[in-house]
């Protein structure tokens, strides 16, 4: 390595003459400053003199249906449909970003760094990991939207009746099971903390299970299960193998979430086909 550096000396930049240079300060910066001032003052004067014709766009009582974030945030919005808001919006993205940042500390092997598909089973791990992420995410979305139960009934005439109605989506586990009354309000603090909301002092177990418990179990458990199965099969040998499978699965899941939120969510965030998707402006009487 060292000889390679010596063999190809880096060309040193030639020093220029002063008259070949363009002054940035004050010439350029001053022009930019004047332009910025002119635009600021013009916009300020315009906004003071004229009302923007926002009309119903600025009417807080009017909500378009569906209401969607910019497309690059629709993965998060899709996540928000299925679990506790704080979890989907803050905790899950933060923890995942930290985990991704920790990848190089977990895989400290220098060999084969920067090489695409550097390990023996890398291509297989990438393909299978992506497929698991793709199918798994779609499966979970279809289940939580109630579509799996709907199509099982609609296409195959299979119905669990009232007995298995609780399996139709995640919320029905809370609504359709005969939870005992005490489980809806479990006091876990030995004293009464008045500054806390009642909901924080008493654990509503079915609600916790549906909004936090099951989503956490799925988000942690399914990738862990995938890695474990691949390790048992002998596909995952090194830490890098595990990370390749994990990251491929993440990219697929992320893509599915973005795509679903963008193209498959209609009015009321109902799962629809992209060609059935239409947006209502939400103006009362014109829905």
């Amino acid at each position: 390595m060292a000889t390679a550096v010596v063999a190809r000396p880096v060309a040193r930049p030639q020093s220029r003459n002063r008259d070949e240079e363009v002054l940035v300060w004050p010439d350029l910066v001053f022009i930019e400053f004047i332009a910025a001032m002119v635009f600021t003052i013009t916009l300020f004067a315009l906004s003071a003199l004229m009302n923007a014709p926002l009309l119903d766009q600025a009417n807080a009582d009017v909500t378009p249906n569906p209401s969607k974030a910019p497309w690059y945030l629709l993965n998060l919005q899709e996540l928000l449909l299925h679990m506790n808001a704080g979890m989907a919006g803050v905790i899950v993205p933060t923890i995942w970003l930290v985990i991704m940042g920790a990848f190089p500390y977990f895989d400290r092997d220098h060999e084969g760094q920067g090489v695409w598909f550097g390990t023996e089973g890398a291509v297989r791990l990438t393909v299978v990991g992506s497929l698991v992420g793709f199918i798994g995410t779609w499966g979970l979305i279809l289940w939580d939207s109630g579509k799996i139960a709907f199509f099982l009934n609609d296409w195959f005439g299979l119905s669990g009746g009232d007995t298995f109605r609780f399996l139709e989506n995640v919320r029905s586990i809370q609504n359709q099971l005969p939870w005992p009354e005490w489980s809806r309000s479990i006091t876990y603090l030995p004293f009464n903390l008045k500054i806390l909301d009642q909901g924080f002092q008493h654990l509503d177990f079915p609600a916790w299970l549906v909004e936090q418990g099951i989503p956490t179990a799925v988000l942690v458990g399914l990738p862990a299960l995938m890695i474990y199965a691949m390790w048992k099969l002998g596909w995952v040998v090194t830490r890098r193998d595990a990370l390749i499978a994990l990251f491929s699965g993440f990219i697929a899941a992320y893509g599915v979430l973005t795509l679903t939120g963008t193209a498959f969510r209609g009015q009321g965030q109902e799962l629809v086909f992209p060609w059935e998707l239409k947006v209502s402006e939400g103006i009362p009487g014109q829905e």
Binding site: V62, T63, Q77, E168, N175, Q176, G268, Q269
Partner: peptide, 28 residues
Amino acid sequence: TVPWNPSFNGAAVNFPGVTGWFRCPCHG
């Protein structure tokens, strides 16, 4: 702002036979 959806069929949310629901445009 949650709109009233008079034609929404409860079968999609586990309550077959009930039509007309409030359904949030943001997260369903």
